[in-house]
């Protein structure tokens, strides 16, 4: 079932993230995604996430589509100018990809090839506008293209960003550029998320909350330091430190967070560290399977 249809149905949405390989062998990524069969409404595929070089997500999305998955392809503005973005949108559409998550992208210095030229020819709002134009049969310069795309575009938001004013300015522009849903960065503090959800309620499009089950206290500290927008509270870190089974404790924390934000979002997006081995269990803990 198409993701746009699922969004409109009012169902509580579950999506999960996989990454393309850092090499030519795609089998591991496909096997990892295979663990999500029957669990999720769509699989997100990342685009050189954290500015680390990986295979193009177009290929993995296409292969996952062949396995029966609905996919949401991430598309950043970091690596492509407007010509390349248009080419890849057409290519993605031709390969059966119908959902794109549009974002500016992390800066290259965060990644493994920090001397890379940062492109940022368009920003995420302008990329959403571009997708809407192509959906209507036009290119960025408003010239007709042969056929049109049918892409459900989503956007991202940081629920922790304060003050709200500048953040809401951007979100409102994303909505007016026809974003159909918002996916947030990882939520670890339900109170901060709920504050954000209250303020953003007026936007009128579904908000899908990002969830990362933490694996260890060390892992939590690493993310606080290295991943933009991530902020894991000290309380969660100390629970991880004293837990007998840290991975299980991380899932408990994630399940509690989901329970605390569930009425304030339209779905969750699972971004595990190191594969989806525990995703089924986490969703079972949340009563989100079946």
């Amino acid at each position: 079932m198409g993701f746009a249809y699922v969004l409109e149905s009012g169902k509580f949405v579950v999506t999960a993230e996989v990454s393309p390989p850092r090499g030519t062998d795609i089998s591991g990524a496909l096997a990892g995604a295979g663990l999500l069969q029957g669990l999720v409404d769509a699989v997100n595929v990342t685009d050189n996430q954290r500015s680390m070089m990986r295979m193009s997500p177009i290929v993995l999305c296409h292969k996952l589509g062949e396995m029966g998955f609905e996919t949401i392809m991430h598309m950043t503005c970091r690596d492509r100018n407007r010509l390349a973005l248009q080419s890849d949108l057409l290519a993605a559409h031709a390969m059966g990809i119908r959902n794109i998550l549009a974002m500016s992208g992390d800066y290259p210095t965060m990644g493994d090839q920090p001397s890379t030229k940062p492109v940022f020819d368009l920003d995420s709002v302008q990329l959403l506008q571009l997708i809407e134009k192509m959906n209507n049969g036009y290119d960025f310069q408003d010239q007709p293209i042969d056929g049109h795309t049918s892409i459900c575009a989503g956007a991202v938001a940081n629920p922790y960003a304060r003050p709200f004013g500048p953040q809401l300015l951007k979100i409102n522009k994303k909505v007016s550029a026809k974003a159909r849903f918002i996916q947030t960065q990882a939520v670890f503090d339900a109170a901060l998320f709920n504050e954000f959800a209250d303020v953003a309620m007026h936007i009128g499009i579904p908000i899908i909350a990002g969830i990362i089950p933490i694996r260890s206290a060390q892992n939590a500290r690493f993310m606080n330091e290295k991943i933009p927008g991530v902020k894991i509270p000290d309380e969660a870190i100390s629970r991880m430190e004293t837990a007998e089974d840290p991975a299980l404790e991380g899932m408990r924390i994630a399940a509690e967070t989901i329970a605390d934000i569930r009425t304030n979002c339209r779905g969750i997006h699972i971004m595990p560290i190191g594969g989806h081995g525990n995703t089924r269990r986490l969703l079972e803990m949340c009563g989100l399977v079946g």
Binding site: Y107, P118, Q126, V156, N158, A161, Q167, K173, P228, G229
Partner: peptide, 24 residues
């Protein structure tokens, strides 16, 4: 650093730019 003309990116940390470390 990302030349954003329509509002901030999502990467600021406590109001600081994730790249330059000073106020966004």
């Amino acid at each position: 650093p990302k030349s954003q003309v329509n509002g901030p990116c999502g990467g600021s940390i406590d109001g600081d730019c994730e790249i330059w470390g000073r106020e966004c």
